[in-house]
Design a protein around this nucleic acid. Structure first.
Lengths: 150, 150
DNA sequence: GGCTAATATAAGAATGAGTCTCAGTCCAAA
DNA sequence: TTTGGACTGAGACTCATTCTTATATTAGCC
């Protein structure tokens, strides 16, 4: 995996493949959104995206985001406010969790150690099992104040 | 703490005290919402609340929820969909996390062991610190399918 | 009891994020 | 070069949530 943050040809090739798998094209608009998400390096809301792509209508951005989600390229992130955020799918970047600033709403990434992940996964497996819940994934959010807000 | 799930006089007394602290009254409408949240036993969205309180307008429910939040009685929970959920504040119930069904949207509670919480807190403290982030709290969500959906 | 000021309410209008529609454009394959 | 499906911009639309306003309730005081 060479594409972590920043836009590489590898990333675009991967995205194109995933879109093709569901018979979708990798158009300019979709490419622009993938680049916006990759260069942001953290989950962004629709205003951020619109700001980065001022010449593209929001309705197209929303539509593209939905398409990219169905293709497994983009993930919708629920923050602590009412606004949806979007980021590249974890298997295009890496497994991570989020810091949510309760003051300005900023969302940034944290990457936990594998030991931490192992502990968490085992424990959650057990808890979910006890309630007949079929676990697919988990998310961990840290709430507090980002560097700029304290 | 005697009020875990289910509506007790203790709970109402606590809520009344918190409202009084911010110069708000514990009216019938607010009491009805507290009872709805307590008897649900898991985070509910506004439709659930409206269903449980069919004679009260939604605008009042929303207003009451805001007031109860400022009084520290209610917490807003972000699920994985677009709809806000509400539950009683953790210090009126107990520290817990959530199972989110990605099919029907149902949110239920899980209570982790104290050992699990200690591990998580330590690890997150370290990660947040490394980014100059001031940690206040954390949340852990398990995504998957609830018993009814698989 | 009745008075008053502050607080709360119902009803519905307004707001705004997100979705849908539609008419037209682009693209790939034959 | 035609045809069908995918895609787009523009704007109307939906619906959760918030705001407004006029009325009702309450606590405290006489």
């Amino acid at each position: 995996m060479t594409a972590i943050h920043g836009v590489t040809d590898d990333l675009h090739a991967l995205v194109e493949g995933r879109l093709r798998r569901v018979e979708q094209r990798y158009t300019e608009g979709r490419r622009a959104i993938v680049e916006a998400l990759a260069s942001a390096g953290h989950p962004v809301n629709i205003s951020d995206i619109a700001g980065r792509l001022p010449d593209r209508p929001r309705s197209s951005a929303y539509r593209n985001l939905v398409d990219l989600q169905s293709a497994g390229v983009v993930r919708r992130v629920a923050a602590n406010d009412e606004f949806a955020r979007f980021e590249l799918a974890e298997d295009l970047t890496e497994h991570h969790h989020h810091l949510l600033c309760t003051n300005c709403g900023k969302v940034s990434d944290i990457t936990p150690s594998t030991a931490f992940e192992r502990t968490i996964t085992e424990q959650l497996d057990r808890l979910a099992d006890a309630q007949g819940f079929q676990l697919h994934s988990h998310r961990v959010d840290v709430l507090g104040l980002c560097e700029a807000c304290h």
